[in-house]
Nucleic acid binder design. Structure first.
Length: 682
DNA sequence: ATTAGGG
DNA sequence: CCCTAAT
């Protein structure tokens, strides 16, 4: 749903080029503050989600955002009349930048191009007076109330997975048992104690932290349904850098908060799920939680951060998590390590977890989704007799992870192989799974139905027909395609897109197919470690290929349903340029909202101050560097100049493009003016 | 670390 | 997006 309102706030108008960097202070804020990453999915999330879905009584409608925008033309015109004056006034008095002032700014013409021509002045903005707000609600709200209520009724002791791989061309590895010697992993789990707290903080955080004189955030003024309780989180986590192999380092954060509401509940739910799990996972994130708290607090530094953040803050974070600054990635090396952003690289595996349950559609993170093909072949339930009224007691015997493709050097040690496999599995599990429920061979898609309505009751017969599937968590569209494949045959072996872990270039490519048996603890552990981070849409982790970098090519094992873009992990002969382990960052097209935010920031800050723009409007989007913003602006300007027919990708509203041109013209002028002033004689 | 531009 | 040069 998109709300369009006159922007009487939230926009200060163009500022006179700043002489001093007011944002300097912000810039210098401790790094850790910036590293807050949320939305990581942890085992809790997975379990909670799973449980929630099963017991879910209510569906969660996904409010998709719609970008239809209608301007209030009449009002707009009126204000236009004053635009010029106001604009001048504003320029003359920077200190009085007032949103009101700006809101009135508008061009005297309705034609952008015209306005542009007349530039030097105020025409700046024929459109700025109107802001479009897109709200989206978190889609699926995982409700685990029932589970919570019925704590004790549900026991998921056997959350194991067996992977049986068959194959072709892959060496058969007998069976990797991930057991025992993963002490490191276990250790990591000890810090979970305060998770609850962390989560709480997280979920309660108010994303809007603008302070005056900054205008009110858009969100504040527009009530976006659903956001309130979803606010997420900003993170919980982060931490030290010395993390053991399997886990991601702390920066990684635990996030939580894919769905705030969910998360909060999730935790609670966890307690019900089983001591085992709880204990296992339990403490690893206490520190994290604490830190997050700090982050949250510190984050409120008051700088006015309009748009992007406020608007999308909530749900953006639900999506991807691939904010991996190149720099960080550069740190990767062959030893199994994970960078703080979620990429995990171990031995031949290179994988970046995807954020969990995002149901959000707007993401551009499909790849992984398809790439992750997980299907549970064996889901069983036992009817529960029991308690409190009518609770259905389910027991999922195991989930099977069909295929994992691992590439590892022949010279790798068994130990590294184990780690590799563990990483692969954890990556998959933590990468964002959805649970599908099928009843008597039919997929039950309506999440809003109650178990009873669906036919899942205490009746043993029904329960026997109940099946669960682990599916890649994907964006709507992808989900769709996924679902399409196995509508009626949930349990059938559906060719799932293999998860491919690119091997490092220098490595001998030997793919191994093996099966694993995971102990519950390990799984959990893994999940916990793979909490996702990244707020925004995260494309797919899988897509990462090492070595050559861009591997948009199709995977060798082509799966019918995969779009070629969806996954591609074919190791390409590396070229010298990029270091082997360097991967080109995944492409993440700017969403309209991001563009909006960018435009707004540039309108105010001007070009040439990308760092400030970044801080102002994309501080939360770790993956958007100032260089990216600059580049985007560059392309926007270009896009705005070419004919609509020549434009590609997600269409940017003309309104924004007009603003781009206007702002660009304005600031260009300012720049020349300024330089001229600096050296008049020259 | 940023900015500006070319690729 | 990447890469570089220049600040």
């Amino acid at each position: 749903m998109v709300l369009h309102k006159r922007l009487d706030y939230g926009f200060n108008g163009y500022q006179v080029p700043a002489t001093a960097r007011r944002t300097r202070s912000i810039r210098r804020r401790p790094k850790f503050q910036r590293r807050v990453e949320d939305n990581q999915m942890c085992a809790f999330d997975l379990l909670a989600t799973l449980a929630g879905k099963l017991l879910q009584e209510k569906g969660s409608p996904t409010l998709s955002s719609d970008t239809s925008s209608q301007k209030d033309q009449s009002g707009f015109d009126k204000e236009c009349q004053n635009a010029n004056k106001l604009f001048k006034a504003e320029l003359s008095d920077e200190g009085s930048r007032d949103k009101k002032c700006f809101s009135l700014l508008s061009s005297q013409t309705n034609t952008p191009s015209t306005a542009l021509k007349g530039f030097p002045h105020p025409e700046i903005d024929g459109h700025s007076g109107i802001a479009s707000i897109t709200s989206s609600s978190c889609s699926e709200r995982v409700v685990s109330d029932k589970l919570v209520d019925g704590k004790g009724h549900n026991k998921m002791e056997n959350f194991t997975s067996n992977a049986k791989l068959d194959s072709s061309g892959y060496a058969d590895v007998s069976c990797c048992k991930l057991d025992g010697d993963t002490s490191e992993v276990k250790d990591e789990l000890h810090t979970f104690e305060n998770l609850p707290t962390g989560i709480k903080n997280c979920s309660s955080e108010d994303p809007l932290d603008e302070n005056p004189p900054a205008p009110i955030s858009l969100v504040d003024n527009v009530k976006l349904s659903g956001h309130d309780d979803r606010i997420p989180c900003s993170s919980l986590s982060k931490g030290r850098d010395n993390v053991p192999v399997v886990s991601r380092d702390d920066d990684e954060n635990f996030s939580g908060c894919t769905h705030p509401s969910t998360k909060t509940k999730s935790f609670r739910t966890m307690t019900c799920i089983g001591d085992r799990i709880r204990k296992t996972l339990a403490s690893k994130y206490s520190k994290v939680a604490q830190e997050s708290k700090d982050d949250i607090l510190s984050n409120r530094d008051g700088e006015f951060k309009p748009t992007y953040r406020s608007k999308k803050h909530c749900y953006k974070r639900q999506r991807s998590q691939m904010n991996i600054p190149l720099k960080k990635r550069k740190l990767f090396n062959y030893s199994p390590v994970s960078n703080s952003n979620g990429f995990i690289r171990s031995g031949g595996i290179y994988y970046s977890p995807e954020n969990g349950m995002s149901q959000d559609a707007s993401g551009s993170s499909p790849r992984i989704d398809k790439g992750l093909g997980i299907e549970s072949l064996e889901a069983r339930q036992h009817s529960a007799l029991r308690c409190g009224g009518s609770h259905v007691k389910l027991r999922i015997k195991s989930f099977r992870v069909p295929e994992l493709f691992i590439e590892i050097p022949e010279t790798a040690t068994i130990g590294s192989l184990k780690k590799t496999v563990l990483d692969a599995v954890t990556a998959v599990l933590g990468g964002g799974l959805r649970v599908g429920v099928s009843l008597q061979g039919k997929k039950v898609r309506d999440d809003s139905k109650t178990l009873i309505q669906t036919g899942i009751s205490l009746d043993d017969n029904q329960l026997d027909a109940l099946g669960f599937t682990l599916e890649p968590n994907s964006s709507p569209s992808l989900l769709h395609s996924c679902a399409e494949h196995s509508p009626h045959v949930p349990r059938a072996e559906i060719p799932q897109p293999p998860i491919r872990y690119p091997s490092s270039p220098a490595v001998i490519h030997q793919r191994t197919r093996g099966s694993f048996e995971m102990l519950p603890e390990h799984q959990v552990t893994s999940l916990g470690k793979f909490v996702e981070s990244d707020h925004d849409s995260a494309p797919s982790p899988i897509k990462a290929s090492v070595g050559k970098g861009r591997t948009d090519s199709k995977s060798l094992d082509t799966v019918p349903e995969m779009g070629e873009e969806e996954l591609a992990m074919v190791p390409v002969p590396q070229k010298s340029k990029r270091s082997e382990n360097m991967q080109r960052r995944i492409r993440r097209p700017f969403s309209v909202d991001e563009v909006e935010a960018l435009v707004q920031a540039v309108e105010k800050l001007g070009t040439g101050r990308w760092r400030d723009v970044k801080i102002r409007a994309f501080d939360d989007a770790e993956h958007r560097t100032y260089v990216d913003l600059k580049d985007k602006w560059k392309t926007l300007v270009h896009t705005a100049r070419i004919s609509p027919q020549q434009r590609r990708g997600e269409p940017v509203p003309q309104e924004l493009l007009d603003r781009v041109l206007i702002a660009h013209a304005y600031w260009s002028q300012q720049q020349t003016k300024q330089t001229a002033q600096a050296s008049p004689r020259n």
